[in-house]
Simulated assay, not measured.
Amino acid sequence: MCNTIQETTPVTPLDPSDARCNAVKYAILAPSPHNTQPWRVAFQGDERIILSIDHSRLIPGCDPLGRQAFISVGAFLENLDLAAKNSGLRADIDLFPAGWPDSRLVQDTPVARVDLVEDPHIEPDPLFLQIPLRHTSRRRFEKRKVPLDAAGEITAAYDFSLVPLGFSHDDDLIHAIADLAADAMEIELADPERFRETLQYFRFTDAEAHTAQDGFGHAQSGYGPVMRFFIGRFILPRSKAASSPESFSRMAKRSTREQAASAGGIGWLSTKGDHRVDQVRTGRAFQRVHLKACALGLALHPMSQLLADYPGMAGLRSVLRDLLGVPDTQAVQMLFRMGYARPVLPTPRRRPGDFFFP
C-alpha cells in the first residue's frame, strides 16, 4: 500500500502496452489554473496509478490555498476515468490514501490512488470522445443566449446532488458579473506576486507556447497568426508588459469585461463544504459540464479571479454570492461563462512523460 510519494516504485512510464499510459495521455488534457498542469504521476505494480500535485507548478499568489489546483486534480481524474472506461477498465479511485488532508495546505502526499481493473460490465461513456475537442475559449462569444434546455442537458451529465449547477442567461446578471470580473482582474494584477505568476504563464508569442508547452495566450482569444505576431512582437511584447505592468493590466481588464459581457449564459458550481474532497468532486463535475457543453456545440470559459481566496478579493466574492443567490452555507467553487463561438486553438500541453516522477 502506498501512503507517500517516497514509497512509489515507478515502471517505464511510456510503455505502449500499458493501459495506464493511454489513460494518462487523456487525463493530462484536463484544464488547470493558468494551464499550469500541476500533476505528478507514478505507477505501482501492474494496475496502480499514484497521483500527486506538483508543487513546482502551484501559483500561491493567485491560488494561495491550492483550491484551484485540487479542482484541476478532479478534472484529471474524470478524464482518467473516462479513458479507462473506453478501454473496458474500471477505475477504482481512492482519494487521499494517506489520510484526510488539511484544507489550507498542499501536502506532499498522494491525492489519489487509482487501480485500473478489467471489468466486462464497464461501458464507454460518450463524453470520452469530447476530451480532445474540449478547449477553454477566451473569445468574445456571439450575441446569442444559451437556452435553458441546454443547461438542463448539462446538469443531467453528472451527479447534480453533490455539486449543484446554477445557470442564468439574464442580461442584467451577465453585465453585473462582467463589471465584477473586470474589477477582479484589476485586483489580481495589482499585486506584484500575482502579476509575476500571470506573466510567467502568459504566452505572448506562438514560439513561447511551443517552447513552454504550458500556459495560455492570444491564441485562446481567437486571434489569427498574423495578429498574434504583431501583438506579441510590437503592440504588447513580454518586455513591455514586464516593464509597464499597467499596460498589461489595462489590456487584461478590458478583455475580461468584453469576454464576460458577451456571455450567452453564466454557470456556477457550488458545494456544501469547502474541503479537499469537495474541490476534487467539483473538478470532476466541472469537467463533465465542459465536455457536455462541448458536445452541445457550446464554448466555455472559467472566470476564476472572482473566486480567488486571497483577502483582497473577499469583497467582490461577497457581492458575487449575493448576485447568484448562493447561501452562506455553500461554497461557490467554479464560475464560468458559456456561449457560441468559433473554435480556438488548444492550450499547449507537455508530453505525457513529463508528468512522471522517479
Results as ranks from 00 to 15, higher is better:
F356C: 02
D309M: 13
A30W: 11
F128E: 12
S255V: 04
D274E: 07
K145I: 07
G217R: 11
P358D: 12
L105P: 00
A341W: 01
L105S: 13
G45I: 12
S168T: 15
P101L: 07
S103F: 00
P237G: 13
V163L: 05
S103E: 15
E153I: 02
L127N: 08
R284W: 01
V332H: 03
M251A: 15
G339R: 08
S244V: 14
D63V: 14
E193D: 13
P64Q: 10
K292W: 04
L148G: 08
P132C: 06
P164A: 06
D108T: 09
G325K: 10
G217T: 06
I235E: 09
V277S: 11
P101S: 06
V344A: 04
S52V: 13
I93C: 05
L306F: 03
A314N: 12
R104S: 13
R284C: 12
L323E: 14
M313C: 05
F96E: 06
I50E: 08
E193S: 12
S239T: 09
A331D: 11
N79A: 08
L14I: 07
P245H: 05
L269P: 04
M1V: 11
F216I: 12
K240S: 05
T198H: 05
D322Q: 12
R144Y: 00
H169S: 14
D102C: 12
G88Y: 11
G224N: 13
G166I: 06
F216T: 04
V106L: 11
F356P: 13
A260H: 00
T4K: 13
A242R: 15
E123A: 14
T4G: 14
V332L: 09
F43D: 01
K272M: 08
P327Q: 10
F234S: 11
D94G: 01
P16A: 10
I174N: 00
E78V: 06
S103V: 03
D81V: 10
G267Y: 04
R228T: 07
H275F: 05
V146Q: 10
E208P: 01
S304Q: 09
Q287K: 05
Q220H: 06
K272Q: 12
L345S: 14
G61E: 03
Q44P: 00
G265Y: 01
A30T: 08
R284D: 02
A91S: 13
A331I: 00
K145V: 10
F167M: 09
R20L: 03
V226W: 15
G66C: 04
G152P: 10
P10N: 15
F286G: 03
V277T: 13
L199F: 01
D18G: 13
V277H: 12
G45H: 08
T155N: 02
S244W: 03
P101T: 02
A150T: 02
E197L: 07
T109L: 15
A295F: 01
S255M: 11
A295S: 15
R57M: 06
E197A: 08
G166N: 12
A314Y: 01
P327S: 08
L80I: 04
P33D: 03
R288F: 01
E188S: 14
A260N: 01
D115C: 08
G339S: 05
V111P: 01
R196H: 13
T271V: 09
F216R: 01
S32G: 10
I266S: 02
V41S: 02
R250E: 15
P327R: 05
S247I: 11
